[in-house]
């Protein structure tokens, strides 16, 4: 066991973890932020995507101890209903970009990461960027629309 200090959604946390504890399990079970999901635990589905120091990473492929001193953003820190929804969350709601919702937090994190880099992505860019996030429900059609929706909202905010 070791102590780690980590800023989670803006809040400083100090926790004891076993060396082998996956960041994913740490987030879900120790921090009780269960919005980050496990879909494969081998890096292939993107359900566990979080932002670590602002970058999208797969929390199933890191140990919690490695995040010591970092800043972590999970879906819970992105925005919340009713009046603090993030444009990407709004987009997913408006465009029916989710069904069971299991892939959704990871999808939203990956979409935020995309829009931070490319505020006006094309269909193709969205699809490429989200290719590593598997959704079994939606067929992605409305996810692409959701990201466009968010991008448009972002552009409106700019102007």
């Amino acid at each position: 066991m070791r102590e780690i200090e980590i800023t989670v959604n803006g809040e400083r946390r100090r926790e004891a973890v076993e060396d082998r504890r996956l960041l994913l399990d740490f987030i879900r079970e120790d921090l009780c932020l269960t919005g980050t999901h496990a879909g494969c635990e081998h890096g292939a589905c993107g359900a566990c995507t979080v932002l670590l120091d602002g970058q999208a990473v797969r929390s199933c492929l890191m140990f919690a101890a490695q995040a010591d001193g970092s800043e972590l953003t999970t879906i819970e820190g992105v925005g919340s209903y009713p009046d603090r929804l993030h444009p990407v969350q709004e987009g997913f709601w408006e465009e029916h970009g989710l069904q069971c919702g299991y892939c959704t937090p990871g999808m939203i994190m990956a979409s935020i990461d995309l829009l931070a880099e490319n505020p006006s992505p094309s269909d193709e860019e969205i699809r490429e960027r989200l290719a590593g996030n598997i959704c079994r429900c939606t067929g992605y059609v409305n996810i692409v629309r959701a990201v466009h929706h968010a991008a448009a909202a972002g552009r409106e905010d700019q102007s």
């Binding site: 269960t34 919005g35 999901h37 879906i75 925005g79 209903y81 969350q89 997913f92 709601w93 989710l98």
Partner: peptide
């Protein structure tokens, strides 16, 4: 959706 997009689904 509001709960699911916020990461507040309960599975």
């Amino acid at each position: 959706d509001p709960r699911l997009i916020g990461g507040h689904g309960r599975y």
